[in-house]
């Protein structure tokens, strides 16, 4: 069990690192494109496609597991006072189980989509250049699978009131 906890934590931290790198890279890329355009009147090829298909998918979806691990998914807190601490704990455990279920459905569906895109070698035309985009489709099943893992691992921690989500 503690092995799973460790795995969930490690992978969450990795995702946070990857996502942060994605933010940094996207910023540098867009700024460089703007600067080159303003000074030399040239554009970095495929900026639009790289930003939307690579950076955005990576930094918006991949860190999902990390967000789950830190319990930063946005939820409505208003009625929380209605339930006692014990009920809330069991409720949260059920929610985590439900979340894992939803994530697993998304894993299967997005995995099928990714395989299909891999098979046809999906690309988009960036001006006159066929820019491959099929690899980005594999980010989704990975993101959802890790989110499912974290949700499942959290359940016993929630029930035993042992959550320690402040690390990183």
């Amino acid at each position: 069990m503690s092995l799973l906890v460790k795995l969930a934590e490690r992978s969450s931290v990795c995702l946070a690192l990857l996502g942060s790198l994605g933010i940094l890279a996207m910023m540098l890329h867009i700024v460089l494109d703007v600067v080159l355009r303003a000074t030399l009147s040239v554009s970095i090829p495929s900026t639009l496609e790289i930003v939307t298909r690579y950076y955005m998918v990576t930094l918006a979806l991949l860190p999902l597991a990390w967000v789950e691990w830190r319990k930063q998914m946005i939820f409505v807190e208003s009625l929380s006072g209605m339930f006692g601490a014990c009920v809330t704990r069991w409720l949260d455990a059920l929610v985590a189980l439900l979340s894992a279920g939803i994530y697993l459905v998304l894993v299967v569906a997005t995995w099928n989509k990714a395989v299909e895109q891999y098979d046809i070698g999906a690309y988009v035309m960036s001006l006159d250049f066929p820019m491959p985009v099929w690899p980005t489709y594999f980010i989704l099943p990975l993101a959802f699978a890790l989110a499912a893992l974290v949700s499942l691992v959290r359940i016993p921690l929630i029930i035993t009131n042992n959550e320690n989500y402040d690390r990183v």
Binding site: S41, V42, S43, L48, E49, S126, L127, D128
Partner: peptide, 15 residues
């Protein structure tokens, strides 16, 4: 895109 380039202009992809 190839035409714009052939005419000495710069092709751009904008959403």
């Amino acid at each position: 895109s190839r035409w714009v380039e052939a005419m000495g202009a710069t092709p751009v992809s904008t959403p």
